[in-house]
């Protein structure tokens, strides 16, 4: 199915979770609590349809066709 990720079309498996999406895009393996299994901070956050999905719920949150997802991180600024 297709979602929008950071403003662009993005294909994910049917019923994919937020956790699977974040893991796929960042290349990091995530535990059920949303933390990276390599022990280093992941440093990203997810909004789905303009609502923040807490890290602890990534694993349990399934994406739906047409979802609008923003995946953000810290960059230089301010």
């Amino acid at each position: 199915m297709n979602i929008r990720l950071n403003g662009a079309q993005h294909a994910v498996a049917d019923g994919a979770t937020v956790s699977a999406l974040v893991s796929g895009v960042t290349g990091r393996t995530l535990a059920a609590d949303g933390q990276a299994t390599d022990g280093r901070k992941l440093g990203v956050a997810v909004a789905r349809n303009a609502e923040v999905v807490p890290r602890s719920q990534w694993h349990a949150t399934a994406l739906a066709e047409g979802d609008d997802v923003e995946l953000v991180t810290a960059v230089q600024g301010g």
Partner: peptide
């Protein structure tokens, strides 16, 4: 030190943090 929040880009991720 301040940082801004922007869309994740695989090319430049994580390094500032």
């Amino acid at each position: 030190t301040t940082v801004a929040m922007r869309r994740y880009s695989p090319a430049e991720s994580g390094s500032l943090f």
